[in-house]
């Protein structure tokens, strides 16, 4: 079924993309309720986090259980810079990305030669260490109380206040992140990173500098997460260490795996479904996490690769085009 759906998606790719883009742009005018918009904004932010994690986990194949750490680093960087030093939004965004990227670089060095579960534990532990620092470095992060009254985002003197404005900001950021990740996947670097995922040794024998490309992928992934963190802190204007726990890291990873590793569309899907689902379940909020867990188990039993994990849209597209070309060629003869 998923295969048929994917083929259908690819066949009408252009139309669907236009419709989606239109819907996304019109969304805040269709739904004006603050609650719905807030969910939509969080949804898009999680999409961005998932797209960035997908670069590390799906494309490079290093399953990180600590992505919330980068998100948190970005959020704290932006909060501190804009609150204490009065930086404007764009500068804070860039700096948040850079600092998160630096931590990504820092993390990538020890994990370079670690595989599988060693990578898992180091990323988990990394997330925990960052959180402990956030809790304890009172002078910088204000500890467990968190940072309050972070100035709202402003462009050229205009402060953004409405949900609608933030919706467009995150929509733009998400589009930019998706564009970057897509560009990378389909470039020379993408081939290299995918080759490393499939077989590190063979990739080395193809002349690929494994170390370099691993660092690239991890750093870019953490930079995007840092940017999402910046958005988060400026949007909610309040952050504290409990926003960036291992549980959140796991949630982001679950979204990516739910949609399918290595598939950007899957990441969107996973992030959207798993952000909206808890809201739908809000009625019986006690059982929310329980249902979430059960759903995960059932999904793994039905589709162990995640919904779109075994689907490669590029290949489907190529095969469709090839089939068409062949049929056309036969027709002429």
């Amino acid at each position: 079924m998923i295969e048929k759906l994917s083929t259908w998606l690819v066949r009408y790719k252009r139309t669907l993309l236009i419709i989606t883009a239109l819907l996304a742009v019109l969304f805040p005018w269709i739904f004006s309720s603050k609650y719905v918009l807030r969910i939509a904004i969080l949804c898009l932010m999680y999409c961005m986090l998932c797209v960035s994690l997908n670069l590390m986990a799906g494309v490079l194949g290093q399953i990180s259980f600590g992505h919330a750490a980068f998100w948190g680093i970005g959020a704290y960087t932006a909060a501190i810079l804009s609150k204490n030093y009065g930086w404007n939004g764009i500068a804070a965004l860039l700096m948040a990305a850079v600092i998160a990227g630096l931590f990504g670089l820092l993390l990538s060095l020890p994990v370079m030669h670690l595989k599988g579960y060693y990578f898992t534990i180091v990323t988990m532990v990394f997330c925990q260490i960052i959180r402990v620092i956030e809790i304890n470095w009172m002078s910088l992060t204000n500890g467990p109380l968190g940072i309050m009254a972070i100035p709202k985002l402003s462009f050229f003197g205009v402060t953004l206040k409405s949900q609608r404005a933030y919706f467009y900001v995150i929509l733009f950021l998400l589009a930019a992140a998706t564009f970057i990740v897509r560009k990378i996947i389909h470039s020379r670097m993408g081939y290299a990173i995918l080759a490393i995922r499939d077989d590190e040794l063979a990739a080395g024998a193809m002349g690929i500098h494994v170390f370099k490309y691993k660092v690239y992928a991890i750093v870019i992934s953490s930079m995007l997460a840092g940017a999402a963190g910046c958005f988060y802190s400026l949007y909610t204007s309040y952050i504290d260490p409990s926003c960036f726990t291992n549980a959140i890291s796991n949630n982001i990873l679950v979204m990516v795996i739910f949609g399918g590793l290595g598939n950007i569309f899957g990441s969107f899907f996973g992030a959207t479904v798993l952000t909206i689902l808890p809201e739908v379940l809000r009625g019986f909020s006690e059982y929310r996490q329980l249902v979430y867990g059960a759903l995960l188990v059932v999904l793994m039993l039905v589709r162990p690769d995640g919904l779109f994990g075994s689907v490669n849209f590029k290949y489907i597209e190529q095969r469709l085009a090839w089939k068409k070309e062949k049929a056309g060629g036969d027709g002429h003869e």
Binding site: L194, A195, R197, D198
Partner: peptide, 15 residues
Amino acid sequence: FPKMTVLDNVMVGMH
């Protein structure tokens, strides 16, 4: 590379 097509495998060689 198991998750790639024949063409993409060769493309990795083009690195």
